[in-house]
Amino acid sequence: MSDKKIVPFATSALSKKEQVATMFNDIAHRYDFLNHFMSLGIDIQWRKKALKQLKALQPKKMLDVATGTGDFAIMANKMLQPDTITGIDISEGMLSHGREKINKLGLNNKITLQLGDSETISFPDKTFDAITVAYGVRNFEHLEKGLSEMLRVLKPGGKLVILEFSNPTVFPIKQLYNLYFRYITPLIGKWIAKSEAAYTYLPESVKAFPQGQEMCNILTNTGFQAVTCKKLTFGISSIYCGSR
Rank of each mutant, 00 (worst) to 15 (best):
L57Y: 08
P124V: 08
L95F: 03
L63G: 04
T84V: 12
K174W: 04
D83Y: 10
F9G: 01
K17H: 09
A193R: 06
K126P: 00
I121M: 06
F181Q: 09
E141T: 12
I121A: 02
V161G: 06
L202E: 07
T200Y: 03
L14K: 15
Y177L: 09
G41T: 06
S148Y: 06
A28K: 04
G146F: 08
K48Y: 09
M215N: 07
E144V: 13
I42M: 13
E119G: 12
L179A: 12
I162M: 02
C216K: 15
V227S: 01
I6V: 15
K55P: 00
N103F: 12
K60G: 11
F181I: 10
L54E: 05
S91Y: 03
N139S: 07
Q211W: 03
S237V: 14
I27A: 05
N25I: 09
P82E: 00
F181T: 12
Q45N: 12
I173S: 05
T67I: 10
A130L: 10
A21W: 09
E119Y: 02
F140E: 03
K190N: 11
L115H: 14
L57D: 04
H29F: 15
G158V: 05
L80I: 08
I6Y: 04
P82S: 01
M75R: 14
S122Y: 03
R182H: 12
I131P: 09
K110N: 15
L187E: 10
E204R: 13
K230F: 03
K159Q: 14
I192N: 01
K126S: 14
T120A: 13
T67M: 05
K194A: 11
G87H: 05
G68M: 07
N221E: 08
Y177E: 02
D32E: 12
E214T: 14
M150G: 04
A197P: 01
F24G: 10
Y31W: 08
P210R: 04
Q114A: 11
T127N: 05
N167L: 12
N178R: 15
I88C: 06
K49G: 09
H29N: 13
T233P: 06
K4R: 13
T185E: 00
V227E: 02
